[in-house]
Simulated assay, not measured.
Amino acid sequence: MTETAPATSVEFCGEWFALDPARPFEIGRDADLDIDDNQYLHRRFLQISQIDGMWWLANVGSRLSATVSDSSRTMQAWLAPGARMPIVFGLTTVVFTAGPTSYEFTVHTSAPTFVDLAPVVDAGGATTVGAVTFTASQKLLILALAETMLRREGTGTSEIPSSQAAAERLGWALSRFNRKLDNVCDKLSRSGVEGLRGGVGALATNRRARLVEYAVLSRLVTRADLPLLDAPHPDTDDRQ
């Protein structure tokens, strides 16, 4: 008996693509979804295909990774080169970075296998993200890096600022910014977040991009936090 896949579509920058169960749908620099003429982006990076009645998202690239989340952003997965995962939610958000540019698109399916859960919020209204806590200045650092993605409306592209640009946005010396970036990445790495620690020669851009992807999709920072960037903030935790 032949199983029928649910109707599935992809949305990017307001443009919609209906997926055909009979053929894979590819995303990249030269693909069905032609994301951008970006030399850092694979010609074919991600692939969505239907297998035995279920839709799958596969990373068919060789260098870049993608971050995948449900609509409530309580589930997050890191899709490394060669990996694949089933598309089980009604709305799935995919974010990835190539060079200094971050991209976001969504996958919509008419018959999700799972229903998205609401985020966990404590009595004080703060969203819980694992057991990781950050100082005020560490959160400011994350906000400075994620600002352009948070200000963007809907899916599309945004630029990840350099460490120098983010440090200037905060009025910090670059050495201070880099020290705090190390501390933030170490905290998240110890809690199990992948992609923040690289080997010898790992590009700092990749680490910043991965931090932004994780922070935005997990609601570690939100658009409501952006006014903190322009508010006075005493340096009470400068050693962290």
Rank of each mutant, 00 (worst) to 15 (best):
P161L: 09
P161N: 12
S162E: 15
S162I: 03
S163A: 15
Q164H: 14
Q164K: 14
Q164F: 12
A165V: 02
A165F: 05
A166F: 01
A166N: 09
A167G: 10
E168K: 15
E168F: 07
E168I: 01
E168Q: 13
L170G: 04
G171I: 00
G171R: 13
G171K: 05
W172S: 08
W172G: 07
W172K: 11
W172Y: 08
W172V: 01
A173N: 04
A173S: 09
L174S: 09
L174N: 07
L174G: 09
L174R: 14
S175C: 07
R176Q: 12
F177P: 01
F177H: 14
N178Q: 10
N178A: 05
N178Y: 07
N178I: 00
R179H: 09
K180N: 13
K180G: 10
L181H: 06
L181W: 01
D182H: 10
N183Y: 02
N183Q: 10
V184T: 08
V184N: 00
C185M: 09
C185H: 13
C185G: 03
D186R: 10
D186P: 03
K187M: 06
K187W: 00
L188N: 01
L188P: 00
L188M: 13
L188Y: 05
S189C: 09
S189Q: 11
R190I: 02
R190G: 00
R190C: 01
R190N: 03
S191C: 02
S191P: 00
S191F: 11
G192K: 14
G192Y: 14
V193G: 02
V193E: 08
V193S: 05
V193C: 05
V193H: 13
E194S: 12
E194Y: 15
E194F: 14
G195S: 08
G195Y: 15
L196G: 03
R197G: 11
R197N: 07
G198F: 13
G199M: 11
G199Q: 10
G199T: 10
G199D: 11
V200E: 14
V200D: 08
G201H: 04
G201K: 09
G201T: 06
A202I: 05
T205H: 14
T205C: 06
T205E: 12
T205A: 14
N206V: 14
N206S: 11
R207D: 00
R207C: 01
R207V: 10
R207M: 02
R207G: 00
R208E: 00
R208T: 09
R208M: 01
R208P: 01
